[in-house]
């Protein structure tokens, strides 16, 4: 009985967690085990929590504009810790122009405002065995 585990986290100095909570709830309702870790986290805290809970997915939410720095940092730290197969996805108010750069840095998918939560579920189901 292997359930998909998803860590939902908000890196950086951003307290707007409504979106992250909506996503957490939607993922739970899709049958995933969601580890909700809250706001104002460092990439190090997020990567370490991902390691300890051995999650398959890290879902990052950020609305402060620091995504180009913090999202890739999380990916880098996960790799450093030996977590090479973790799917990292991101969401928030992220300009279209930044998305190719984030994808190149290892963020598998970026979800911007207006995305139905079912899209996120589909993305996880398609990418996690």
């Amino acid at each position: 009985m292997a359930n998909i585990k998803v860590l939902v986290a908000k890196p950086g100095l951003d307290g707007h967690d409504r979106g992250a909570k909506v996503v957490a709830r939607a993922l739970r309702d899709a049958g995933f085990e969601v580890i909700y870790t809250g706001i104002r986290l460092t990439p190090e805290q997020i990567a370490e929590a991902a390691l300890q809970d051995d999650v398959q997915v890290v879902a990052l939410s950020l609305l402060s504009g620091a995504h180009n720095t913090l999202f890739p940092k999380v990916v880098e730290l996960l790799k450093e810790k030996g977590l090479n197969d973790v799917l990292v996805i991101g969401g928030g108010v992220i300009p279209d122009a930044d998305i190719p750069g984030l994808k190149a840095a290892g963020i598998a998918e970026v979800f911007t405002p207006g995305t139905p939560t079912s899209k996120i579920v589909e993305c996880i189901n398609a990418n996690v065995k």
Partner: peptide, 22 residues
Amino acid sequence: PTSPYSGGAILGDRIRMMDLMA
């Protein structure tokens, strides 16, 4: 607890323990 409806769960204990991560 796991939700009896979806089989999913929200594990929220860790939110109180994030500064133990360092």
